[in-house]
Design a protein around this nucleic acid. Sequence first.
DNA 1: CGCCGGTTTGACATACTTCAAGAGAAGTGG
DNA 2: CCACTTCTCTTGAAGTATGTCAAACCGGCG
Lengths: 257, 257
Amino acid sequence: MAGRVLAMVIRAVGRYGCAMLDLQSRPKCSECPIRHRAVCARCDDDELLMLEQIKTYKSFRAGDQVLWRGDGLTYVASVVAGVASLGKTMEDGRTQMVGLLLPSDFIGRPGREAIDFDVVAVTDVTLCCFHRKPFEALIETTPHIAQRLMEMALDELDAARDWMLLLGRKTAREKIATFIEMLVRRQRLTIDDATDQELVLPLTRHEIANYLGLTLETVSRQLGAMKKERIVQFVDRRRFRVTDLEALHLASGDDCP
Amino acid sequence: MAGRVLAMVIRAVGRYGCAMLDLQSRPKCSECPIRHRAVCARCDDDELLMLEQIKTYKSFRAGDQVLWRGDGLTYVASVVAGVASLGKTMEDGRTQMVGLLLPSDFIGRPGREAIDFDVVAVTDVTLCCFHRKPFEALIETTPHIAQRLMEMALDELDAARDWMLLLGRKTAREKIATFIEMLVRRQRLTIDDATDQELVLPLTRHEIANYLGLTLETVSRQLGAMKKERIVQFVDRRRFRVTDLEALHLASGDDCP
DNA sequence: CGCCGGTTTGACATACTTCAAGAGAAGTGG
DNA sequence: CCACTTCTCTTGAAGTATGTCAAACCGGCG
């Protein structure tokens, strides 16, 4: 009983804290965890100050829709914490995830009135939002932002093209293997010597299917197969470790290491 | 006999002209057909002059490989005329086209040593090439170039994401219909009131298959089906016209007009 | 004419989807 | 703490769109 009440209180506080953030919170850019990777990475202190003045934090709970396709773009934003997804949906309900947004990734684009896909919070998400108009003005006057945004867009483009090969040509097994390898690689970026590290699937089976252009049944079956082959080992439905990295890579269909 | 010799002469002249261009030709930017759409679109006269000094034209014949995956990027370039393809290939030979490069599109990216896909001339192609190093320097000093490159990269990114939906979720029929609709739309950009205009497939069946993540047999069958349904009408294997635009759109699986 | 690359067409194989049922975990409410 | 619902996930059986293999066609060119 006490436990349940406590849980409710925590959640309520969570929501409240969230609302607070929406209205006011404007943490120092200089202490921001994504300071050196986000759109502001190349900015010097003066430029940072300009950004600081037009920024607001917003938080969303896992599952919340952040933006609907066709929404007017009053804000653009950087992901500060959490994971969000970019998705497209067809009239009959088929959907395809076209990007995963991780901390430092950018949402929206200057010079366009509306956004052409849905943005959904996969986990709890915190965004650093900028009013679009002043942000666009800033781009004109602050070369470092356009330069960084160009870099980021080109990186995204490369990633999108890799994904096109995956979607167009890879088998279900290769898709799954590539996806897991991607998670491993990402882990490596944050922790060195991540060998035998426990990993977490940030997405449900359904979302993975969505990301890979498959059905959730196929995802489940392929994961099952790789479990049986001792390539991966699950501790629960989300958490796992890779037991045979080489076999995993082999299964991904990619060349080189 | 005379005909054959003449053909050889023409080809030789073609090649020679080509070599000439490689070495010397540096047409005025101000008269360039892609002046207002390419990476130089926002440049003023001074900036254009800077670009003019580091540019060279290069030509390729249909089928030529322009760049191999992994090639060192000594140049970046704009497509001036013709069509080129960006493609990825897996070890076992499966390939996926990840972009079609039309006049004004940009090849290569500043700040990277190598290119990660193959570039092939689909038709005869002329490129406006810039040495990468000086071009990168120019980006640092010339905000207009970074701004334009950012815009173009973001446009490409949107297109890539649309294509991801196509590759991941659309049926063969929808893919073909979407592809044809794309050609229609492109035609509309150049000629107004293009209704009932004759169109040309810029790609072979094999290349179309490659672009859509299908096999050439499936492409052929679907085109055949749409011919039978009087949605399109072929005058020869390349040239056709759309006889039922509405049905075409319906078949594409996209909403809205 | 005969070759050749691109294309069409057919018969067959299969990887993946679809449909359906049930198992596990997690949350809800008494 | 225990039913009860709900959600995610697994597993099976059956269906189908697309791939694979193979042969024939067609227009262009030598």
